[in-house]
Design a protein around this nucleic acid. Structure first.
Lengths: 219, 219
DNA sequence: ACAAAATTCAAACAGGTGTTTCAAATCTAT
DNA sequence: ATAGATTTGAAACACCTGTTTGAATTTTGT
């Protein structure tokens, strides 16, 4: 029973520190001292720092991904094509549900997501392609149904623009909310932030295609 | 005359390596060995690694910012309000002009911009607020004229969504273009990428405001 | 209660970082 | 040409990193 205790103490401290400071800037010594365990125990229980990072991400993705998949399935099973707004909206509830899984969970997951992509590239990408490829395909399918006018290439770029908006916003959400709080006394919560993203992204992905590029495609 | 030579050798090697690997992952030993100068010379000529990073960024910003400011001024002086598309379009030419300043300059600057924001937060932000505050205000003014419906808070958030899209896309533009090249044999150049961002951002910033948030604002 | 397995612990390892030092070399003026 | 300032060079400094080691401890199954 001590095993679980130590492992979880490490995971809890690590996820908090990773979210606050990023993966690279969080040393094992800091994690283990905050978790009140021995330095060697992270290598003993997880093998390496990389494996610890994956374990931290996995704990959240296991909660988030099935719920997201379910939401997308609802849209895909409906007879009429979804709107882009609906597609992006289906991310919101699974995101907010993380607050039930762990206190402040939505916020931590958002920052982990941001870090996971921008820090040492690869960790998050690894999960997406190897573990959750089907969900990725559901997303693709839903967006394509919502906006069939997009060519393969335009779709690719706009999805990455979207990813960038999300990753950046999530990674720096606490800093941004701090600024907003002092600049115009608006105390926005995580939910408000997530919900504000939806119309922005839906409009961006649904934007008309420049004639110049449309022509290029036709060649 | 040897001074300039060494300093520039360092700057040239540093900007390339910073763009490729980020600031944190580029050691002074790597920079000085590629520049073929002594390790100590970067501390001698620039004082510290932080100061070197600032010097690298400054060289590009000095080229870019006045041109951007000029483009924005054109829009602001016109009688009728600009469109969002026009506002974001005014970034494109100054961006592309960097290829005349230095070979592959646009691409390097884009990656530096991305790194400068997501890496060790602060460097780029320092320039923006202390050195180029007026340009920042021009941007603000132009966007507000193009979309007066935005409240201060909605404006703030959408500008940061925009920043996120740009920073992320620029930082990973080489990787993304590589994927695009193999996935659907489309060899997009930097210009094509920058131009594709414009309609996405214009649509996002111009998206209708959710009734829920519009109500909140009215309180 | 005891033997065996699992876990914790303090310490050291091997390698990396930015920065400093101070003598040697080079350039710059008189 | 020579004295003085500037620049280069090799080495060391102080500190931090993830990982490994091997003995001490605790937990587990019988």
């Amino acid at each position: 029973m001590t095993r679980q205790n130590t492992q979880n103490k490490i995971l809890d401290a690590a996820e908090r520190l990773f979210a606050e400071r990023g993966f690279a800037d969080t040393s094992l010594r800091l994690i283990t001292s905050e978790a009140d365990v021995n330095l060697a125990s992270v290598n003993y229980h997880f093998g390496s720092k990389k494996a610890l990072i994956k374990a931290v991400l996995a704990r959240y993705l296991e909660q988030f991904m099935p719920k997201l998949s379910e939401e997308l399935q609802k849209l895909l099973q409906a007879e009429q094509a979804p709107t882009l707004h609906q597609v992006f909206d289906s991310f919101v509830e699974p995101m907010l549900a993380l607050n039930n899984f762990r206190s402040n969970g939505t916020n931590i997951f958002m920052q982990l997501l941001g870090r996971g992509y921008s820090d040492s590239q690869g960790h998050l990408r690894w999960f997406m392609t190897t573990q959750y490829g089907e969900v990725l395909q559901q997303i693709t399918l839903a967006v394509k149904r919502a906006n069939p006018a997009l060519s393969a290439s335009e779709f690719f770029w706009r999805m990455h623009f979207t990813l960038g908006t999300v990753v950046f916003t999530l990674a720096s959400n606490e800093a941004l909310r701090d600024i907003a709080r002092v600049d115009f006394e608006e105390d926005i919560d995580v939910e408000g932030l997530v919900r504000r993203l939806v119309p922005f992204l839906a409009a961006g992905v649904g934007a008309p295609i420049l004639p110049a590029f449309a022509m290029k495609e036709a060649l």
